[in-house]
């Protein structure tokens, strides 16, 4: 990392809060100021954000496969209450 490596390390611990929008205004400004002078930290933050997005996007809309659902209701003796029957 360029610039002060210790500064990069200090800010590393705050990155989740920053990316989740939980960091206060002062901390956000501090991280953004640092990133403006530190291309490595900018790349780290951008790729970390993209990593989170890729996992979250994949999760959206995945339902329970119908065969898994049928076997679950059978195991629980709830076949007569299977949705859609």
């Amino acid at each position: 990392m360029s610039g002060s490596k210790q500064r990069c390390k200090d800010l590393l611990g705050a990155l989740s809060d920053y990316l989740d929008g939980d960091a206060d205004e002062r901390l956000c400004a501090e991280i953004e100021r640092h990133m403006a002078d530190c291309p490595d930290c900018r790349v780290l933050v951008d790729t970390l954000r993209k990593t989170i997005i890729l996992y979250r996007e994949r999760e959206a809309g995945e339902g329970l496969p119908s065969d898994v659902q049928t076997r679950l209701y059978r195991r629980l003796n709830l076949e007569d209450l299977l949705p859609g029957t």
Binding site: K5, G13, V43, D46, T47
Partner: peptide, 21 residues
């Protein structure tokens, strides 16, 4: 809370087209 070493891989791959993901 000490995360140890700084991340090693610092290539910017966000620029890849969406279909790559």
């Amino acid at each position: 809370p000490d995360l140890g070493e700084l991340p090693r891989q610092l290539v910017d791959w966000c620029c890849l087209p969406e279909e790559e993901f």
